[in-house]
Computed example of a mutant assay.
Amino acid sequence: MGTAFNPAKTSPASWDAFSDVDAFIDAVLAELAAMAADSTWRTRSGPKSP
């Protein structure tokens, strides 16, 4: 009784880890701007540092 191993099919093109970094940064900046406009900043509760 064995288990079948099917390797993932990959494309022959090289993988670029940084291909979507600019889009991610733009989305984060847009979200931060929307939060600032709505005044919906989330704050953590807990003890204050001295």
Rank of each mutant, 00 (worst) to 15 (best):
S19Y: 11
A17F: 05
F24S: 08
V21W: 06
A13T: 04
K48W: 02
E31Q: 15
W41A: 02
P47W: 01
F5R: 10
A23D: 14
T3H: 14
T40Q: 12
A30S: 15
R44G: 03
A37I: 04
E31F: 12
T40R: 13
D20K: 15
F18Y: 08
K48D: 01
F24Y: 15
K9H: 05
D26C: 04
D16T: 07
L32G: 07
P47H: 01
I25F: 00
T40M: 07
A27L: 12
D22H: 09
A17C: 11
T3K: 12
L32M: 15
T40P: 01
S39Y: 05
K9M: 03
G46F: 00
R42C: 01
K9F: 02
S45R: 14
D38W: 03
R44P: 00
R44D: 04
D16P: 00
S11Y: 09
V28R: 05
S39K: 13
E31W: 07
M35C: 03
V21Q: 09
T40Y: 02
A13E: 10
P7T: 05
A33E: 06
I25H: 01
G46T: 00
F18H: 09
A8V: 13
T43R: 11
S14K: 15
P12W: 06
D22F: 07
F18A: 09
S14A: 15
D16S: 05
A36E: 14
E31L: 14
D20I: 05
F24Q: 13
A4I: 12
D16F: 03
G46N: 01
S11M: 05
A4K: 08
P47Q: 00
A36D: 14
S14F: 13
K48E: 01
S14R: 12
S45W: 01
T10R: 05
A8K: 13
M1I: 12
W15Q: 03
D16C: 03
A36Q: 11
A8C: 08
K9G: 02
I25A: 11
L32S: 06
A34F: 05
L29A: 13
A17K: 12
D38Y: 04
A4C: 07
F5H: 12
A37E: 08
P12A: 05
A23M: 08
A8F: 06
P47G: 00
M35G: 01
P7Q: 10
D26T: 10
M35S: 04
T43S: 11
A8W: 05
D22R: 09
S39R: 11
P7S: 12
A37D: 07
T43W: 03
L29N: 14
W15C: 02
P50F: 06
D20L: 08
L29T: 10
I25N: 05
T40H: 06
A30I: 03
G2C: 10
D26A: 13
A30K: 15
